[in-house]
Design a protein around this nucleic acid. Sequence first.
DNA 1: CCGGGGTATT
DNA 2: AATACCC
Length: 565
Amino acid sequence: MDSIEFDAIIRHPRTIIHIDVDCFYAQVEMLRHPELQSKPLGVQQKNIVVTSNYLAREYGIKKCMSVEEALQLCPELALVNGEDLTHYRHYSAKILKILHRFTPLVERLGFDDNFLDVTSIVQKYMNSGNDSELNISINMEDEHPVGKVFGPSEEECPCGCHSRLIIASKIAAEIREQIYKDLHITCSAGIGHNKLLAKLVGLLHKPNQQTLIFPCSAAMLLSTIESVSKIPGVGQKTTQLLMSNNIKTVDDLRKTPLEALEKKIGIDLARKLKDNAEGIDETVVKPTGKRQSIGLEDGFKSVSLIAEVESRLGALLRRLTELAMEDGRIPVAMRLTVRKHDFNKSASGKRETRQCALPKHLLPSSKSGIYDHAKMLALAMKLFHRTVDVSKPFHLTLLGVAFTKFEERSSGKNSITSFLRKQVAVQSVLDISSEEGVSDINLGSPMSVNQDSNDGSAMSTTSSPISKPIGTNNQTVDDDVLNEIEPLPKKTRLEVWLSGRRESPSNEMADLRLSPSSPMQLSPKIDAAVLKSLPIDIQREVTRSWPTTSKPKSNNILKYFIANK
DNA sequence: CCGGGGTATT
DNA sequence: AATACCC
Ligand SMILES: Nc1ccn([C@H]2C[C@H](O)[C@@H](COP(=O)(O)OP(=O)(O)OP(=O)(O)O)O2)c(=O)n1
């Protein structure tokens, strides 16, 4: 191959747009409270201002600043509580839908940070001047990019990315416009040939702006960010490690040989950082699928009473089951999170978690699509007793509960979906000789079987009642599943694979977990045995909190269908 | 009580 | 189950 051909080889085949909503929570709150639009506004979670609008930022208010500090900087700061993320989650979903009008290749970080691989969209515009599936019009005549450009742009890269990126800037503008027209939300965007550059360059001009970077300016952009901690993926720990080795800036990173770096931070991270320092990032846009966990947390000064734990967990569970119903899938595992007060030290207190299988999907699929909150709470309390020794005083500062595994909901043949989910989406591989490499497309069937770790032999202390009545031993025959929660059984890869391709996915695996003496009837009523095992005040709590569990009427079911739209 | 969420890796 | 990272 001669040199002319060599120059023509595509080196920057992909085109990536990064979209970040401007001061997301604050914008949502301004929409909800229009009278706050023209005032400095902070969104408060407990004692911190998690974000603020741009008016407030003029006072020097930063993300995650303490309320005290923020009010010192701006005494007239308006504050709205943002501890309940419902509205943000709602807007987040709407924004994602708009992004999906352009491409399914959207990867999200959090609620408002999005990467789009628009390579194929751009390609269609280059080939035919439009995209038949995308009825937006883009002015192909104008050869200038929309928005700002970082660095010089005189010299065009021979790979052709120059025009691709310019087209992408017009797509980004269209995306932002649609989001604004539909939702009155403003975003900022970065356009580049990889995720790293798109994200970093977008930070340069905010809010409600967009910035493009051509590959020839990549190294320059990385030089300007200085601190290594600004590189996505370099958090507190890595920063400390690097700094203790006198590596503070991107330039330090460049000067450090890979061999030296890898001894300090491991080969994987070392290679990534050496690449990133040059503006190289081969990671693909991995379309974000369904969430792998749905959880809620509540932090507080101190909780030391079991009854209060119970009522807080009850409140969390009630909200959590609503979220699970919106999701549509069926949770099969529950996780409890606890943070204990660390009073010997200023340290923040570590979290402890306990997880268990959800008995036979305590859930809706049975005719009454309604969660049995009493059993949910009893299960959560079981987990609680597994993490906190209540025979001694305790002092909690946080409780959280989450669903962590899901099954697709019944109906059709969902078998194919879980199998497909494992497959890497094919994207952006236009030329195998690209500088930034080709992603492995791993289609290997996951037949390899996990070495089965020994089954929960260490779990023998499970028969303590919910709240132990004094003088009672545990001899009572507990045939309820709640009395035998065991750690989540591990599925082998083979099992995952098999259950994923089963035509009618059944609960065989779950069935195996249940003891023979515990027929899992999905009674819509509170299990009397369970209820009786509870202390009287808790019994009252349970029945007061969820009156519907005592006698579900078809009306109750209806409202869930309506809520679900 | 640095919020209240998430993900991936070990 | 914990850790590290992200928003
Ligand atoms: N440590 C953090 C960081 C962010 N957020 C929330 C609040 C933000 O509104 C939202 C988005 O985070 P961003 O980092 O994108 O920040 P903003 O969108 O608020 O501001 P900017 O305009 O600088 O992007 O996520 C959070 O809860 N905790």
